[in-house]
Simulated assay, not measured.
Amino acid sequence: MKQLSLDNLRTLVSIVDLGSFNKAGEALGRSQPAISLQVKKLERQLGKRLFSKVGQSYQLNADGVYVYEQAKIMLSINDEVFKTFTGQQNLRGRLRLGIPSEFASTLLPSIVGEFSQRYPDVSLDVTSSLSRDLLSSSKRKDFDLILALSKDIPSERGEVLIEDDLVWAGDSTLKLNKSALQLVLAPEGCVYRSRVIDMLKQQTQPWRITYTHADLYGLIAAIKQGLGVTALAKSSLPPELVSVKDKRLPALGKINICLFNQDTQHPQVSKTLSEYIRARIK
């Protein structure tokens, strides 16, 4: 199997980008004869001339243009791989992450395992709580990164990762109570709770809250015991629950899942973990 020399390809790209063999040699620390030799080796390997003489200068011909474009792609991949692994060796520090409990159960296992394995010198300090508490003025300063739910577009250091659907969630064997809708909800201050109550107040369907718990696992346990239904962002729906549809259940609309990056002490660590979270919120 033949293999192209990335060194020769980088020389070709440098000649084209810098405009001459001389300038390419200066940039790469090689003499002009050495640069010319690399081009000739590349041409011999491909069995094609890549430059045509025009007047006193050499310009890429059609084959040369094709090789030049492909060389840029190959060099970009090569450089990105080295950039990634060089960054891994240098990435270190402590990062404080705030995350809603329902995302902690579905998102953290893959992030903590893979991220920690790739960046062993980064210490993750994770806190799960209601979005309202994570973003409060008294708690917000305690975190470098915050994943949170928001009804509005964030205006301060925040980006919307996705606009997600809010869905009713329950057990697969659920049978809704005919007299009154039974609700299993997080405490007051939860975005889901507020949306559910607001939407139900607009209807005549009777309802009551049968169980309140701040942690998703507590809510799941109650739902599995038949205590009612809850509401969750579609992307955070755990495997233990299913999306429930019934004419008595009003549409809950959408919610913004946002990421707030406020770390100035270890910006590269925050940036890297942000990319992990962004890739997994779909």
Rank of each mutant, 00 (worst) to 15 (best):
E80F: 11
G158V: 02
E188G: 08
K141P: 01
R195P: 00
E159Q: 15
Q38P: 03
L6C: 00
Y68I: 07
R49L: 09
N261T: 05
L185K: 06
I209G: 07
L46A: 12
V39T: 05
E163S: 09
S155D: 09
G113R: 13
S57V: 15
N256H: 04
E43M: 08
T210N: 07
A34M: 06
Q59G: 01
D164T: 08
Y217W: 05
A169S: 14
Q225D: 14
L227A: 11
P100Q: 09
T212H: 01
C190M: 07
V81S: 03
N256Q: 00
D215Q: 13
I111A: 01
K2I: 13
D7F: 03
S137A: 10
Q89K: 13
K83Q: 10
S129L: 04
Q70R: 12
T11A: 14
V39Y: 05
V229R: 03
P238K: 07
L185P: 01
K282R: 12
L145H: 14
L252W: 06
G25L: 07
S150D: 12
S131A: 15
A221D: 05
Q32I: 13
Q203G: 07
Q205C: 10
D164C: 07
K234M: 08
S243H: 08
I73K: 11
K141A: 12
I209Q: 13
I153T: 10
K141T: 10
S270M: 09
K48N: 12
N177T: 11
